[in-house]
Amino acid sequence: MNAPLRHLIPLVAVATALLAPAAIAGPKCTDAPRSKWMPEKTLQDRITQAGYAIDKFKISGSCYEIYGKDKAGNRVEIYYDPTDGRVVKERIND
């Protein structure tokens, strides 16, 4: 192997290891302590009243996250700010 390339391999490995968690981590939704978050049931009720079906509801980092379906039947993954229920990130998989 070429000597200069041999020195790059460890650097690439370190950079990949440092960046990989950021690529798979969800968004940051709030800095508020959990005592300031709305009850899970409150947000679940809002989501279903808006026409969504929730398959899975969970806490993901500083967010509430759902996997489910929207009104059109598309699969969705949505991250919500747990303090006010606003959508922080949404992915639709039709």
Rank of each mutant, 00 (worst) to 15 (best):
residue 20 A to E: 09
residue 66 I to Q: 13
residue 15 A to D: 06
residue 35 S to R: 14
residue 12 V to C: 09
residue 85 G to L: 06
residue 40 E to Y: 15
residue 75 R to F: 08
residue 46 R to Q: 11
residue 50 A to M: 04
residue 22 A to C: 07
residue 41 K to E: 14
residue 59 I to D: 08
residue 38 M to F: 03
residue 30 T to P: 10
residue 67 Y to Q: 06
residue 55 D to K: 12
residue 22 A to V: 15
residue 37 W to M: 09
residue 15 A to Q: 10
residue 45 D to A: 02
residue 68 G to F: 01
residue 79 Y to V: 08
residue 78 I to C: 07
residue 36 K to F: 06
residue 36 K to T: 09
residue 22 A to S: 05
residue 16 T to Q: 09
residue 79 Y to A: 01
residue 52 Y to S: 01
residue 50 A to Y: 13
residue 65 E to L: 02
residue 18 L to H: 05
residue 78 I to T: 08
residue 32 A to L: 01
residue 49 Q to K: 09
residue 84 D to W: 00
residue 17 A to H: 07
residue 35 S to Y: 05
residue 17 A to F: 14
residue 45 D to L: 14
residue 68 G to H: 09
residue 24 I to K: 10
residue 52 Y to L: 14
residue 45 D to N: 10
residue 74 N to L: 06
residue 63 C to E: 13
residue 73 G to D: 13
residue 69 K to Y: 00
residue 73 G to M: 02
residue 19 L to S: 02
residue 10 P to N: 11
residue 76 V to Q: 00
residue 51 G to E: 07
residue 22 A to F: 10
residue 29 C to M: 00
residue 85 G to T: 03
residue 11 L to R: 12
residue 33 P to L: 08
residue 50 A to H: 11
residue 11 L to A: 07
residue 22 A to E: 14
residue 46 R to I: 03
residue 61 G to H: 12
residue 43 L to A: 00
residue 37 W to A: 08
residue 13 A to M: 15
residue 13 A to K: 00
residue 38 M to N: 02
residue 35 S to P: 03
residue 29 C to D: 04
residue 42 T to L: 10
residue 65 E to A: 13
residue 31 D to R: 11
residue 28 K to C: 10
residue 16 T to F: 12
residue 36 K to S: 13
residue 76 V to N: 05
residue 48 T to I: 13
residue 76 V to A: 09
residue 72 A to K: 11
residue 14 V to E: 07
residue 60 S to Y: 12
residue 23 A to T: 02
residue 81 D to W: 01
residue 35 S to W: 02
residue 65 E to S: 07
residue 50 A to T: 09
residue 72 A to V: 08
residue 34 R to W: 13
residue 20 A to Y: 15
residue 66 I to K: 05
residue 41 K to F: 09
residue 49 Q to F: 10
residue 62 S to R: 05
residue 78 I to F: 03
residue 12 V to A: 09
residue 51 G to P: 07
residue 13 A to C: 13
residue 41 K to R: 04
residue 50 A to K: 12
residue 43 L to S: 15
residue 68 G to N: 13
residue 41 K to Y: 06
residue 29 C to P: 01
residue 15 A to S: 11
residue 49 Q to G: 08
residue 60 S to V: 13
residue 70 D to H: 07
residue 80 Y to T: 12
residue 10 P to E: 09
residue 79 Y to T: 00
residue 15 A to F: 15
residue 16 T to E: 00
residue 34 R to E: 15
residue 13 A to Q: 04
residue 43 L to T: 06
residue 67 Y to V: 02
residue 57 F to W: 02
residue 36 K to H: 06
residue 33 P to D: 15
residue 56 K to F: 09
residue 20 A to I: 03
residue 46 R to M: 04
residue 60 S to N: 14
residue 26 G to L: 14
residue 35 S to T: 13
residue 11 L to V: 12
residue 44 Q to W: 05
residue 14 V to I: 15
residue 47 I to Q: 08
residue 79 Y to P: 02
residue 79 Y to G: 02
residue 51 G to M: 08
